[in-house]
Design a protein around this nucleic acid. Sequence first.
DNA 1: CACTTAACTGAACATTCGTTCAGTTGAAAA
DNA 2: TTTTCAACTGAACGAATGTTCAGTTAAGTG
Lengths: 197, 197
Amino acid sequence: MVMARKQGSHSDITGPRVLDTALRLIAQHGFAAVSMRQIASEVGVQAGALYNYIPDKQSLLFDMMREHMAELLTSLRATDLQGDALRQLEAFTRFHIRFHLPRPDQVFVSYMELRNLSPQNFAVIERMRRDYEDALEAILRQGESEGAFAVADTRVATRAIIAMLTGLSHWYREEGRLDMAAIEAIYWDLVRKSVGA
Amino acid sequence: MVMARKQGSHSDITGPRVLDTALRLIAQHGFAAVSMRQIASEVGVQAGALYNYIPDKQSLLFDMMREHMAELLTSLRATDLQGDALRQLEAFTRFHIRFHLPRPDQVFVSYMELRNLSPQNFAVIERMRRDYEDALEAILRQGESEGAFAVADTRVATRAIIAMLTGLSHWYREEGRLDMAAIEAIYWDLVRKSVGA
DNA sequence: CACTTAACTGAACATTCGTTCAGTTGAAAA
DNA sequence: TTTTCAACTGAACGAATGTTCAGTTAAGTG
């Protein structure tokens, strides 16, 4: 029987390092602007070695984005979204900020590199993004039927709120003026008011 | 005296066509993913001919973005932003939508390709973007001093509102369910409420 | 008409690209 | 100690990259 190697084997170290390094570089320079040789160089191997961990460059991007979206949806479903619509909306808002703020590179790549996905891969990611949007839309619809919210168009409001929240990741810096708790409070105030609650 | 040629000369036709074609292709595939040969091919010339109109590829991107931002700022200053803060905010909101909706490619490129600008060029564009943000921030501050608006943090609210409005360009389609007037009404409702007015 | 010159071609330049693969290395297995 | 094989190297592949430039074309000028 062949055991998995525990020492001396770098596979379980190099593998994740490839994805981590690629994520950072692509977030910084863009998918098309980063070469396999750049990624390999920062990992500390030759370009050919990358192909022990990924079939090709396209899969590198797809795997990063799919993992990000899968984590997002899993975390959302694991989050307690109960109570009336107002409480659910607050929970969703705070969840979104808490999930996205510590992951600026993933957010950047997932929103900027959609064009560089193959059509099939794009469809998969788009479906996941739509699932996330639908969770917020359901909350808004419930709020309307409760009479707690007043929005002119639920679908548009859904997208507007997500754009507002996601935009946060484009300028937030950890060392900045506001910590995450302050950010949460400010955005929750904006979101709550925007739906008329 | 040498007159500018009026017929038979393609310079005044090809020149703008280069920028237009480049804009469309870059919006579609991204700056790094579009080659000079692709642009030239769609324009109907050889790659070398492009260099009669631009010094290099970087200038192509920079010229496109600077022109977009300059038009944005010029149009904003030509817009009647008077009356109390609430009226100004409405005027700003409607201006933003009317300016951006008919220019999806420019918006896309200007917000997605900042990474591909050289540091000097980036600084120029960033300065212009900041000028635009400041116009909105001034309105919010006036609204606060009037007692018309209630926002937890003016700087954050400024960015949040612009993110909300700009996000519109990412999903709006001319042939869609809503025309521009409907969109304006829906977003103005969201913006007005978000600042507590 | 001959002359000038703006506009463009077509080929070439040195790099770089993603990807493949035969061969090397060195630690775990027997 | 010998064997095994996962992990990796280093070189090579054809194709594509941005950019340059000597030469061609054709329309305007005098």
